[in-house]
Design a protein around this nucleic acid. Structure first.
Length: 484
RNA sequence: GCCCCCAUGGUCAAGCGGUUAAGAUGCCGCCCUCUCACGGCGGUGACAGGGGUUCGAAUCCCCUUGGGGGUACCA
């Protein structure tokens, strides 16, 4: 075979959901793992669904995740135009050919008539199919109606007998009765082609070798096959992908905000994690490896690793994987991506972002959850003194009060306010008192944060808050415990 | 309703006629430890059901059930 060429052909809806992105990814991987070309084509034949700026969403998303196309509307190529609405004449030319060959025909049926037909079928509980009303109009009849300016669409003339078989790389051989296929519309009354026609013409003209798309197209593929045959064109390799479902087992939808790439990205999921995760939704490398860069995916990807059954999008696992990617970041890199999230909860106090980064980088799974971990920094929350009771530490309000007072004295004396000096002074105190670390450190941590759980311990929080604030908060703790 | 497809733990999944049925995630426990997290160790949990084929089926065939997709002048 010659050069492998795949395409990603989204319709510009202004929204890139995870399933679409994954389709793009797989199409890209199939191309790149074969040293082939990846093409971007915009399927905007539905003029009613035009959304302003939607194409930019597609460009931006692909750019962010690093899926680069070799040909497309923005960069051109030898097979353009790459926007279907600009290819109208091309379809006109090919539909003529089909009509001449007798594989397509003019249909003058009104929408009302079709609606009645549909209703009738429904009442009779039989499957709706176009009744072929215009299928056998004579040439003269067609000419006459055309001359009279009657509105028309052009339908595919599907054989009424026999079967059609096609082979899909993941689903295998699929055979259907031609009698179950409808004479679907190829050209709409506005002159635009439907997907049913445009995808075949474009994939052929653009020399696409592997047609990669969601499995929702599986059931119409026989009709496309018939079209390829009618034209005498080579049938491409079909790669239909299992769908991605929501946790409740339903298809991903736009209403489910979390399902779009943009939303996840904005929520603080790293692009590498998103790509890695969706790559594994429906594909397995056949090895134990789970973490892949884009390049590693290219290296390891193979069509036989694709599975047939739909996969449920599991937010928990994405979270875990995102955590993995965050932990792989260097401290500086983490600081870079986390800084916007540091700024949100911390407005009053001047804290060292390096220290914050150190505290949070193993404690962050999703960036957007950073603020809630730092809600005690600006302002000490009001807390219950029962927080001072910890069974395993053997702390309670009584001994906490004593140890807090001791800690205060020691820290007050400290000249150099660094992690090490705070550490040493507090540990000396522990030693002097002859108690366990937790006896002193737990109460201090509680006094500093007012929280049950904090990122980091007493020493780290003291370092973060600075001497003045640390002493102030310990004092508050002492007062709380004293006035009990 | 009709057509097509799918079916291994909650989830992602390996398996492609002979395995103690991997691994990951989640959950639980233990260790580390000043809390939490990270890290380490261990545990829980699956071949949807029924018929065949075969010396032998998670693997092949059929039926049932369940799920998904399609059934548009949407893609």
């Amino acid at each position: 075979m010659g050069e492998v060429r795949t395409r990603f052909a989204p319709s510009p809806t202004g929204y890139m959901h995870i399933g679409n992105l994954r389709t793009a990814l797989y199409a890209y991987l199939i191309a790149k793992s074969n040293d082939g070309k990846f093409i971007l084509r915009i399927e905007d034949t539905d003029q009613d669904r035009y959304v302003e700026g939607a194409i930019d969403v597609i460009y931006n998303t692909l750019k962010i995740v690093g899926i680069e196309h070799d040909e497309g509307p923005d960069i051109g190529g030898d097979y353009g135009p790459y926007i279907q609405s600009e290819r109208k004449e091309i379809y006109q030319k090919y539909i003529k050919e089909l009509i001449d060959k007798g594989d397509a025909y003019y249909c003058f049926c009104s929408k009302e008539r079709l609606e009645n037909l549909r209703q009738e079928s429904k009442n009779k509980k039989i499957p709706f199919r176009y009744d072929g009303h215009c299928r056998n109009l004579t040439k003269a009849e067609v000419e006459e109606k055309l001359a009279a300016g009657e509105k028309y669409v052009i339908r595919q003339k599907v054989p009424q007998t026999g079967t059609t078989t096609f082979k899909d790389e993941v689903f295998g051989k699929i055979t259907v009765e031609n009698s179950s296929l409808d004479d679907s519309i190829l050209i709409k009354s506005d002159g635009m082609p439907t997907y049913n026609f445009a995808n075949v013409v474009d994939d052929h003209l653009m020399a696409i070798t592997h047609v990669v798309r969601g499995s929702e197209y599986l059931s119409s593929t026989p009709k496309y096959n018939l079209l390829y045959k009618a034209f005498g064109w080579e049938i491409p390799i079909y790669v239909h992908l299992p769908l991605i479902l929501r946790e409740d087992g339903k298809k991903l939808s736009k209403r489910e905000g979390d399902a779009s790439f943009e939303d996840l990205y904005r929520k603080g999921f790293l692009k590498e994690a998103i790509i890695n995760y969706i790559a594994l939704l429906g594909w397995s490398p056949g090895t134990e490896q789970e973490l892949f860069t884009l390049d590693e995916l290219i290296e390891n990807f193979s069509i036989d690793g694709l599975s047939k059954s739909p996969a449920i999008f599991d937010m928990e696992k994405l979270r875990w994987m995102n955590g993995e990617y965050i932990r792989k970041l260097s401290l500086d890199e983490f600081k870079e991506v986390a800084t916007p999230y540091f700024k949100k909860p911390i407005k009053k106090r001047d804290v060292d972002y390096d220290v914050l980064s150190r505290l949070l980088h193993t404690r962050t799974e999703v960036l957007s959850e950073i603020p809630e971990q730092l809600d005690f920094v600006d302002e000490l929350p009001d807390y219950d003194i029962e927080l001072y009771t910890h069974k395993r530490m053997k702390t309670n309000p009584e001994n906490a009060l004593i140890h807090l007072k001791e800690a205060y004295k020691v820290l007050e004396e400290l000249e150099d306010w660094s992690f090490d000096s705070i550490h040493d002074s507090l540990m000396d105190l522990v030693k002097k008192l002859g108690v366990k670390n937790g006896q002193v450190l737990w109460p201090v941590r509680v006094a500093l944060s007012g929280k049950q759980y904090t990122p980091g311990g007493a020493i780290e929080l003291a370092e973060l808050l600075g001497k003045e604030e640390t002493l102030k908060r310990i004092k508050i703790g002492i007062e709380k415990l004293s006035s009990r």
